[in-house]
Structure formats: C-alpha cells, structure tokens
C-alpha cells in the first residue's frame, strides 16, 4: 500500500472541477466536484443524459477527462490508472457477460484478468456464486440465463478480485421489482458488512433514497444538490400524512371527512390539507412529531383514525425544486416515496 493511501482523512474518491467534452463539442460533464469517503454508499441521481454514465466512465479509466483532477484511493487517474484498475470493480449499464462461457468460466476469466489464480480464485468464485444464488446454474452457458441471472453474474464477476471501490452504473435498470429488491439487499450487505465503498448512478428515486447515504442530484452535467437523502428532502419543508377515518358508528362518508378536515385544519403544524379520495392528505412540517399530535387531536372526538401513512417529500421534489423539472422515468416499483408509518424512513 502506498503511503498516500494510508492518510485517513483523504476521501477515497476525490473529484475536482471535472469537465468532459465530447469530440462533437457536447459538454457531457460540466465542472463537477465531489468526494466520497471510504466505506460510503454514494450516489449520482439524475435523468437520462445528465452525465452520470460519462462520469463513471471517466472515473473508471475508460474515458480520458477533458480537464479537472481525479484521485481514487490516493492514486492520480492520469499517472496511475493501472493501480486504480486493481482496486475498482465496475458494473456498466449494459450487462456484459460472455454468452458462450458458463457462469463459472465468466467469473474465472474475470479473476484471471485481475491477476488472480489457483485455489484463491477458485474459492472466491465458489463463494460468490453461492452468494448471488447461481451455484446450480454455474455450469450453464451465460447466454441461457435470464436477465436477472445475467445481472447477478455480471455483478458477481466484478467482485471476484475483492475491489475496495465499486462503481455501479444503473445496476437495476431493466430488472423486475423482485430482482431489484434482491440486488439492493446484496449491495447493502456489500457496503455494510464488507465495507466496500460504492458509487452508484441511478435514475430511480427509490433506489437512490434507499441505498445512498449521500448523493448528488445531477442535471445537464452539473451537480444541482448534494447531501443525505433525508437532508435533501427536509429542505422541502413539509411531510405528507395520508389518513383515513370513520366515526364511532363505523361510517366513513363525506360528512365524517369534512369533520376530520375541520379538526386537522386548526392544528398549527399543518401547511395544507387535500382530499385524497378515501381520506385526507395533510402536509405538515416534521411529520414524525406531528403524528402523535394528530392522534391526540382525534382522541377527543368521535372520529377514529383507521390508517395513517407518513411520507416524506421525495427526491423528485428536490429535483423539481432545483431544476424546475421532474425526473421522468417509468418507476417499476410504484409507491416510490411512502412507507407505512414506522417503516424504514430515515
């Protein structure tokens, strides 16, 4: 290990004023600066064409930057790209496995190219095949795998050489919700249990929200906002609380709703109240603290709350605030920003 690497305070990824101009003059990345600490799960969230993939290509030595400076694990990307390649694992947007090799052969080749051999490599490959659930299919040609299996194989093969930093370019694009959840769980495990620093790009709000400890929201080659997902969303100011209710006689009609609305509107924390069809959506600051108040307020009445749903503002609201646009993607997983009360909101 070089001595630059052991300096604890230095971020593991350090990017200053990165600019990438394509041959045709397109400015794909326009003066981006950020850093990622060792062990962090860090993300770039933005729509298609925001410059996410270009940034990853430059960071992973595939594309030469136009200007700016980049160091990864203390190595300068211009001076020591080979040292960086040893330390990083990269999963590109398009799944790339060799269809004519078996799953196991794909992984062994990848290990060989990262200068791993023999027993060490064999054990590592078997362990990873187990982890990603491809042990039974390991001797089948990868071309016969399903999309989800290919993705898992691709991911596993980038991990063979035990990278310290993992770059993932839209790792779940095109996956069904179930495979996506599996990938998420696995990535969280890698980050938490094995301490691998992860840099991820995504256009999925839920993905960024769930996985990233800190993220940059990017648009048109620029960083428009940076912070933890919860800080970014807190900027928006209010949370959304959806409630449904009925009265003590078990009725839940318009008159009950109107009565509930009157109670809620009088509360000082409430910013806005909207009719949500079968109930009400209340916008209030610090929703978590507001909910006990809300419950208490209804305690004194003859209206019972049937359900309470707290949802924080979404990262899309943050994106909207900074760019005036929404990140438009077909979210495969519906219900992107709300979780049950007491759920996994940060």
């Amino acid at each position: 290990m070089s001595n630059t690497q052991s300096s604890v305070s230095r971020p593991i990824i350090d990017v200053k004023d990165l600019v990438e101009v394509y041959a045709d003059g397109t400015k794909a990345v326009d003066g981006v600066s950020f850093n990622v600490e060792k062990g962090e799960f860090f993300g770039f969230l933005g729509p298609n064409g925001a410059g996410k993939s270009t940034t990853i290509k430059v960071l992973t030595t595939l594309l030469r930057k136009t200007s700016g400076s980049i160091s990864i694990a203390g190595y300068d990307i211009d001076k020591d790209p080979v040292a960086i390649r040893k330390l990083i694992g990269v999963q590109s947007q398009d799944t790339s496995v060799d269809p004519e090799l078996t799953g196991r052969e794909n992984m062994i080749l990848q290990g060989n190219l990262q200068q791993m051999h023999g027993k060490e490599l064999k054990e590592r490959v078997e362990q990873l095949l187990e982890v990603v659930g491809l042990k039974d299919a390991a001797d089948k040609r990868a071309g016969r795998y399903s999309g989800g299996m290919k993705k898992r194989l691709d991911l596993a093969s980038t991990l063979v050489h035990k990278p310290t930093v993992l770059f993932l370019d839209e790792p779940t694009t095109g996956l069904d919700p179930q495979s996506r959840a599996t990938v998420w769980e696995y990535l969280e495990g890698l980050n938490k249990k094995e301490g691998i620093t992860i840099f991820l790009t995504t256009q999925y709000l839920e993905e960024a929200d769930r996985l990233c400890e800190r993220l940059c929201i990017v648009d048109s080659g620029k960083i428009v906002a940076e912070g933890t997902p919860s800080d970014l969303k807190r900027e928006i100011g209010a949370d959304a609380i959806s409630i449904s209710m009925k009265n003590k006689q078990g009725r839940s009609d318009e008159t009950v709703k109107a009565a509930a609305r009157e109670i809620v509107s009088k509360m000082p924390e409430v910013v806005n109240v909207l009719d949500s069809g079968d109930g009400l959506t209340i916008y209030a600051k610090e929703g978590g603290y507001f909910i006990p108040e809300l419950v208490r307020a209804f305690d004194k009445t003859d209206i019972a709350l049937v359900s309470i749903n707290l949802s924080t503002p979404s990262l899309d609201d943050v994106f909207l605030k900074h760019t005036g646009k929404r990140i438009r993607v077909e979210e495969l997983v519906k219900d992107t920003t709300s979780g049950r009360f007491g759920g996994r909101r940060r």
Partner: peptide
C-alpha cells in the same frame, strides 16, 4: 457492442 471489451478494459489486463 456487448460491453465485454469495456469490462476487460476496466481490469488491469
């Protein structure tokens, strides 16, 4: 076109 070349290029091959 399959991205396999890229995948090789990010290794130290």
């Amino acid at each position: 076109n399959s991205g396999f070349l890229q995948k090789m290029l990010v290794t130290q091959v």
